[in-house]
Amino acid sequence: MKFRISRYNPDVDSEPYMQEFDIEVSRGMMLRDALLEVKRQDETFNFRHSCGEGVCGSDGVNVNGTNKLACITAIADLKEPVEVRPFPGRPIIRDLVVDMSQFYQQYKAVDPWLVREDPMPEQEILQSPEDRDKLDGLYECIMCGCCSTSCPSFWWNPEKFHGPQALLSAWRFLADSRDQATDERLDKLEGPYKLFRCHTIMNCVEVCPKGLNPTQAIGNIKNLMLKKAI
């Protein structure tokens, strides 16, 4: 099967180029296996990967124009030639390896931890099963970056717009009954950029390998803001 892989070595190349590889595919083969096969053919080729089962979120790549996790993308479902590129809009470090610093900075900016005003209880902070259910579809994010790097708003303003991943995380803590910093969190999201660059394009929903819905989370944040404002 024909693969066209984006190659770039900043020490040698002036810009990325596509290199063709012929990979013998086997039944049940995943894209990650094919990329490992590419690496066997050409050991200068680089890509990130780790767990190989869609849990660590390391091997996000752009396949035939869509961001996917290579380890849970079956070769059989892909159209030939398979074009594999690094995440769009991110500075390329080498081949398929990109610099995700801004992505992590945006995540950090939403204070992704529980904030308590009350004194900490001796043991755990109790939460009803119903309140716990509100976190379903939010806590599962593995931060692979498929969503944010497929978002045009994040391409245009990655240093100011939080992006779908960080905003999903923001809502994960706003929705948590144990968190007591709702107003502070909402105040931090005000302004034209951090939250309101989202134009509900919904690329994030389409690509999320975990089936999460950042657009819905962003809508929930806006509604909560509105509710608190009137």
């Binding site: 999201l189 005000e190 302004g191 034209p192 939250l195 309101f196 806006k222 803001m225 509105l226 404002a229």
Partner: peptide, 12 residues
């Protein structure tokens, strides 16, 4: 104004 830039613009 900066105030009208986020939520207010969205609601408007």
């Amino acid at each position: 104004s900066r105030k009208a830039s986020g939520l207010k613009a969205w609601v408007i």
